[in-house]
Simulated scan of single mutants.
Amino acid sequence: MAAALARLWGRLGWRGLALLTTGVSWISYGASLTIQPRYGTVRGISVLLDLMCMAAWGWLWITAGAISLAYALVRPGRDLLGVAAAMGPPLLWSLAYALGAMAGTSPTAWGAIAPWASHALLIAIVAYLTRPRLIVPRVVGDGAQ
């Protein structure tokens, strides 16, 4: 059992764990938006509701979560679509709340901007810190003087 967990962790790592937990979170959040959206969320992102209904936005979150999950076990450097799927929805929500606050559709929308943006930033930090290192051989001399 310990060997299997070690192999799984060797394949997953911190980057994969971030994509895995984000994927599960986005699927859960998207399902809640699709089934029973909260009133504050509807008011806060009202600028997006002219583009699609709330159920469609919920499916966007679910799809992004599924993509994040699918890329959790992919090697770093080949998982950029998963990283983008993990970062996209919270950045979009942060922008929607910012626009909602500026438009005055929700007096408390400003309070949701930083929390959503911070999740995307944390994913970017994990992706940066766990990126594959390029090993370039150092050329000492090419023989020409």
Rank of each mutant, 00 (worst) to 15 (best):
A103T: 07
I135R: 10
V83N: 12
Y71M: 08
A64N: 02
I123V: 15
A56C: 13
L51S: 03
L19Y: 11
T22M: 12
L129I: 08
L92Q: 06
L91G: 01
S46P: 01
A124F: 14
W57V: 00
M1C: 07
L81E: 10
A86H: 06
A3M: 09
I135Y: 08
S118M: 14
D50M: 03
L5Y: 10
V24G: 04
L33K: 14
W110A: 14
A18Y: 03
G10D: 15
L60H: 04
S25C: 04
L92R: 05
I62R: 04
G82R: 09
S46A: 14
R38P: 02
L129N: 08
G77A: 05
P137D: 13
A120I: 11
G111Y: 07
L17G: 14
A66F: 07
L73P: 02
A112C: 00
A64E: 03
W57A: 00
A72W: 06
P132E: 14
R78C: 12
S32E: 04
M52V: 05
V47L: 01
L17K: 01
R11K: 15
P132V: 13
G13A: 11
A117P: 06
A3H: 10
G44I: 00
H119Q: 10
A18M: 15
L69N: 02
Q36Y: 06
T105L: 06
P107R: 12
Y71D: 05
Y128A: 15
L129Q: 14
P137T: 10
L80T: 12
L51T: 04
A4S: 12
A3T: 13
V47W: 00
P76L: 03
A86K: 04
V24I: 15
L134Q: 11
G30R: 05
Q36R: 11
G58M: 04
A84K: 10
I135E: 11
L69W: 05
M102W: 08
C53P: 10
P76F: 01
I67S: 02
A120P: 09
A112Q: 13
I27T: 08
T21Y: 07
Y128P: 00
G82P: 09
M102N: 03
I123G: 10
P115F: 07
G100I: 05
T34D: 04
G44A: 04
A56Q: 06
G10W: 01
G141A: 13
A112F: 08
I45G: 00
L20E: 10
V74T: 12
A6R: 09
V74D: 06
W116F: 14
R133F: 11
T41W: 03
L33R: 10
G143Q: 13
L49P: 01
